[in-house]
């Protein structure tokens, strides 16, 4: 079922509690009372359509929002994506990392395997951090600059030159998925690691990895299928409006 503006926010969470961290990224926290989605969004000064697109994409992976996207700004999306990044790097990854350092110390965990699992996760952490840094330092600032120029074209020649030099297709082409290692880690824990004494903690780790994996999936989905098309449209507009502001590169 699709989430719409007239549903109560409490019902939304009953429908899919995995949406909680998504709501948190909008600075929405529990304690909704009887308020509807529309009212909660209004209270928090959140663009209702944008909110609905994001939660529906998360709730139903078959939901393809492309057609309704023109109504909100790329900067909104970037803000959301950045918050998601910091949720991964500042909350989830340290949390799972902490659990992993605990689990490798528990009895039943073979001495030889301790560093193996820990290092695998550390490698993953580095990979994800690099991926995110690259986006936050490269493509996101580019999109924000592009939006700014389209909103108020009084910019320096340098800005125009820079914008002419880059295209979102470059991002799209080398945007790799960051879930592969997580996928592997899941199977290592499920299938190949010998049983350990603290099985509850191991269950918890696995659960966290599943959650993170599907959140990352959704995040990549938003980047590839929402951000890229929006920016493609912005680039079209940019090139048709400012064709002669370029430096012929």
């Amino acid at each position: 079922m699709r989430i719409n503006k007239d549903l109560k926010m409490a019902e939304v969470i009953h429908m899919n509690h995995h949406l909680l961290p998504v709501l948190n990224r909008f600075d929405i926290y529990l304690g909704f009372g009887e308020r509807t989605v529309e009212v909660v969004c209004k209270d928090h000064k959140i663009n209702l359509n944008f909110f609905l697109e994001i939660v529906n994409t998360f709730h139903d992976p078959t939901y393809f929002p492309l057609r309704h996207l023109q109504s909100f700004k790329a900067s909104m999306l970037i803000e959301y994506l950045r918050k998601t990044h910091s949720y991964y790097l500042d909350v989830k990854i340290p949390e799972i990392g902490q659990y992993i350092s605990e689990i490798v110390q528990c009895s039943g965990f073979e001495e030889n395997h301790r560093n193996l699992v820990k290092n695998f996760f550390d490698q993953y952490r580095r990979e994800l951090t690099n991926h995110i840094n690259k986006e936050e330092q490269g493509v996101y600032p580019y999109v924000l600059r592009l939006e700014k120029v389209l909103d108020s074209p009084r910019s320096s020649q340098e800005t125009f030159d820079d914008l002419h030099k880059y295209s979102i297709n470059e991002y799209e082409e080398d945007h790799d998925d960051v879930e592969s290692k997580l996928f592997d880690l899941k199977n290592i824990l499920i299938k190949y690691l010998p049983p350990v004494s603290n099985y509850k903690l191991l269950n918890l780790i696995l659960h966290e990895i599943f959650e993170l994996e599907s959140d990352l999936n959704n995040h990549g989905h938003i980047e590839d299928l929402i951000l890229v098309p929006i920016v493609e449209n912005m680039e079209k507009e940019f090139h048709s409006r400012f064709a002669n502001h370029g430096s012929n590169v």
């Binding site: 193996l116 699992v117 695998f120 490698q123 592969s180 290692k181 996928f183 592997d184 880690l185 899941k186 199977n187 290592i188 299938k191 190949y192």
Partner: peptide, 12 residues
């Protein structure tokens, strides 16, 4: 195996 990456295969 359900393992995609080289480092995952190494762990296995």
């Amino acid at each position: 195996l359900g393992i995609k990456t080289v480092s995952g295969l190494t762990v296995y």
